[in-house]
Simulated assay, not measured.
Amino acid sequence: MMAALQQRYLVLKLIKTTGPIGRRPLAETAGMSERETRSVMEALRNQQLIRVAKEGATVTTEGENVLHHLEPLIELQYGKNVLAKRIKDYFSIQAVHIVKGNSSDPGGSNELLGTEAASVFASRIGNGRIVAVTGGGTMAAIPRHLSCYPGAEDTLFIPARGGVGDDIGQQANVIAATFAQTCNSSYKSLYYPESLSEEAHTVFLKEPTARKMLDLYESTDCLLHGIGDAQKMAAMRDSDEDEQQMLASKGAKGEAFGYYFNGAGEIVHRLRTVGIQTNHLERIPLILAVAGGSEKAEAILSYLRGAAKQTVLITDEGAAKEIVSLIEND
Rank of each mutant, 00 (worst) to 15 (best):
M2V: 09
A4M: 13
A4K: 15
L10N: 11
L12D: 04
I21D: 08
A27Y: 10
T29P: 02
T29R: 12
A30D: 08
E36Y: 01
S39N: 11
S39M: 09
L49M: 13
A53T: 14
T58M: 12
V66Y: 10
H68Y: 15
H68V: 04
L73A: 08
I74C: 05
A84R: 01
V96S: 10
H97L: 05
N102F: 08
D105E: 15
I125P: 08
N127P: 00
G137F: 07
A140E: 11
G151Y: 03
T155S: 15
F157M: 09
G165C: 03
D166G: 06
S185E: 07
L190D: 03
H201K: 07
V203M: 09
A210P: 08
M213Q: 12
E218C: 01
T220C: 12
C222Y: 02
L223V: 13
H225D: 06
G228C: 04
D229E: 09
A230P: 06
K232A: 09
M236I: 11
S239F: 13
Q244P: 01
Q245K: 14
G258H: 07
G263L: 00
R270W: 06
V274D: 07
R283H: 15
L286D: 09
A289W: 02
E295C: 02
L301I: 00
G306V: 10
G306K: 00
A307R: 05
V312I: 15
V324L: 14
L326T: 05
